[in-house]
Design a binder for these strands. Structure first.
Lengths: 119, 119
DNA sequence: TATATATATCCGCTTATCCGCATAAAAGGA
DNA sequence: TCCTTTTATGCGGATAAGCGGATATATATA
């Protein structure tokens, strides 16, 4: 419908992009980028209730962004694709560029960066 | 708080990632990846009401993902960073991997891919 | 100033999403 | 089997996000 993005890709985009839109899920992905983790490890790392962590993990799994593997009673979550890591690194770079831009702007105008989290 | 992701980066992540989480905004970004566009051009390309397009564009602008520039009465929107494009390409690759995986799985098991859009 | 064009914003409404307690389900050990 | 540990899910409530018509704002031109 738009550009050369096929309908199939667009459908899948609807599946993946919203998964990345949640900050908690983003933090989970960053944690998993370090190493595979059990739910409990993630609960401790993020300091969130277990039900919250589990639910977000299930979203990531349903969207095929992470893989799971049982180890006794524990479930180990792993990032599925290296490319997801690369994409996340790219996002970090974008963020760093933003920080730089805003610091420059702030020092030029002698103003606070004035960023609205939610316009 | 999590890994080596500094607090500042985490705050910015909260600003950028949710912006990418909406399908309409994703389509806008893809359209702008082709070439800078006015609001009207985007309205026609996406076949959405003007107010809807404008609102999403303002989100993207507030999150510093696009730049604007007036041309007479029109406002031209441009992708701000090349890296955003690269990150989007990376996401496409991930999606293509998913498609491949699921097709293989489906042919092996003689099943429908069975993907839930919303777990 | 009046009119036209293009964009941004206001508003009410609907829907989706997130949260976390409580509880179910899965696996292992006594 | 009973108990423990670990993870997943049902549920209700609160919040956020999206939608789109109507309207305001900005710019250009006559």
């Amino acid at each position: 419908m738009i550009n050369d993005l096929s309908q199939e890709l667009e459908l899948l985009h609807e599946r993946v992009c919203p998964a990345l839109g949640d900050t908690t899920r983003m933090r989970l992905l960053y944690a998993l980028a370090d190493k595979p983790c059990s739910v409990n490890e993630l609960v401790e790392a993020l300091a969130l209730p277990q039900s919250t962590v589990s639910r977000h993990l299930s979203v990531l799994r349903n969207r095929r962004l992470v893989l799971t593997q049982r180890q006794g009673t524990a479930v180990i979550y792993t990032l599925k694709s290296k490319k997801l890591l690369e994409a996340m690194d790219m996002l970090r770079d974008i963020l760093r560029e933003q920080i730089q831009d805003e610091n420059e702007l702030a020092s030029k105008l002698d103003l606070q960066p004035n960023l609205e989290a939610n316009p």
